[in-house]
Amino acid sequence: MNNILIKYIPESSIDMVLYLIEQNNFNLKIVNQRQTKHGDFRQLPNGKFQITVNNNLNQYQFLLTLIHEIAHHITHQKFGRVQAHGKEWKTVFQHLMLPFLKPEIYPKNILPHLANYLKNPKASTDSDAKLSLALRNFEADKGKEFIFSLPVNSLFLFRDVVYKKGNHRRTRIECVSMNNNKVYLFNQNVEVELLKI
């Protein structure tokens, strides 16, 4: 397991992660990228527990996602069926993440955003635009751009639909679908393909 983890998480976090894996009985499966989630936790039909994490995440995203999912597992063991990202999970997640909040593991440009996010963690780290951008080192995937960086009225492609960028709200951006003329709200850190016309 050690040899596998070194490819995916910061080296200085490996001992703590191995400890968490040994203390909690689950299978860790590293899977191909999924569009809708970075990881998940589930009980398999045979009664065993499995955590999956996407293989395309950088080491800081991977570590955060893995701890997020381990928190689901521990919450399930301690409290049974509770709200997926409710107060029980938040408390467990905060408790598990605290030892990882140090500059030997997370770079100084990520730590303040991570600490702020952990005050009230949400279901997805992508819902916190500042943390999401810091985790990705402010670099979009090849051939894509972050929606916040596009000029107003730009046309862009997202999941095979063309949109026109509109006004910024407090945390989201209004975009009009060219398919049905409806307004949709996008997170600032969504990666899209700019259409050059």
Score class of each variant (00 low, 15 high):
A129F: 09
F93H: 08
K78E: 14
N137M: 08
L64D: 08
Y117V: 05
K87R: 09
N137D: 15
F100H: 04
L63M: 10
N27I: 13
G80A: 01
V31A: 13
E104R: 07
W89M: 03
N46M: 12
P103Q: 09
Y117N: 04
V53Y: 07
F93P: 04
P112R: 01
L96I: 02
Q35A: 15
V53N: 06
K142M: 12
K119E: 13
M16A: 14
A84Y: 02
K108Q: 06
N109V: 05
N58W: 11
H68R: 08
E139D: 08
H73D: 03
N58I: 12
H38R: 12
D128L: 00
N54G: 09
Y19H: 14
I67L: 05
T125S: 06
E104P: 00
N116S: 14
H76T: 07
H72P: 11
Q77S: 06
V17I: 11
N116A: 15
F100E: 01
I74E: 10
H76G: 03
I21C: 00
N54C: 14
R81H: 13
T36D: 01
A84D: 05
A129H: 10
P107M: 02
N56M: 03
H76D: 11
I67W: 03
N46Y: 11
Q83C: 09
N55M: 07
I21R: 00
V92P: 00
H113F: 12
P112A: 04
T75Y: 02
I9V: 13
Q77W: 01
T91G: 01
E88S: 09
K108W: 01
Y8I: 01
A71D: 08
D15I: 13
K48L: 11
P45S: 14
L28N: 10
L101R: 07
L133T: 01
I67T: 06
M16C: 12
L44H: 07
K108M: 04
I105C: 01
D40H: 15
P99C: 01
A115H: 06
I51A: 10
F138W: 15
R42N: 15
T91Y: 03
I9R: 07
I105E: 00
R136S: 12
